[in-house]
């Protein structure tokens, strides 16, 4: 596949409506949502921009982590006393009331750590949308990144500048993280 040029349309931070319109226009030009990604310094919900819902695995990873934590707790509570049985204070080897504490803490620990791991892993795993970045994003500007065939260039230019955007053609995909 030939390298496609990535375009970046930058909108001012209060131009949310214009952004939404621009997205609509791009779709009208036959650019599918998959080839567009919106980057912003402020969280806008997909609804606001009329974008399809994004999908994340973080909750599933979190729940998986919680289950792992629960199982670890079960092992520590009920498994380890059997490995080297030691009696203390006249208590049974495995006590249920105290186990609640361990269950709770380890489940929570599993949940919270795996939530973070989920965020981390998803953050550093490659994304399929158009890459590209501009520091002005963190100044609150809204960027629309998209791949477009070269023949659409004039049309694009006209439409987007008309909405008040600044267009950067062929933004370089700067390395933003360590790898």
């Amino acid at each position: 596949m030939a390298r496609r040029i990535i375009h970046l349309a930058l909108f001012k931070e209060d131009q949310v409506d214009e952004t939404a319109e621009a997205l609509e226009a791009l779709r009208g030009m036959g650019i599918v949502d998959r080839d567009i990604s919106v980057i912003s310094g402020t969280p806008f919900s997909e609804k606001m921009l009329g974008r399809p819902m994004t999908w994340t695995r973080v909750p599933i990873i979190a729940i998986a982590g919680a289950v792992v934590g629960f199982l670890v707790a079960a092992f520590l509570n009920f498994g380890t006393p059997l490995l080297y049985p030691i009696r203390v204070g006249g208590m049974a080897l495995q006590t249920i009331p105290t186990s609640f504490v361990i269950f709770f803490e380890l489940t929570m620990l599993g949940l919270l750590i795996s939530t973070f791991i989920g965020v981390f892993v998803e953050s550093i795993s490659p994304s399929y949308g158009p890459a590209g970045y501009d520091p002005r994003i963190s100044d609150g500007q809204i960027g629309v990144l998209f791949w477009a065939p070269p023949e659409l260039d004039p049309k694009l230019h006209e439409t987007l500048t008309g909405l008040g955007a600044e267009i950067i053609h062929g933004t370089e995909t700067k390395k933003l993280w360590l790898f």
């Binding site: 030691i86 009696r87 203390v88 204070g89 006249g90 208590m91």
Partner: peptide, 10 residues
């Protein structure tokens, strides 16, 4: 029961 490392046991 309060010893975390089973240093005092029955």
């Amino acid at each position: 029961p309060v010893c975390p490392v089973f240093a005092t046991v029955h």
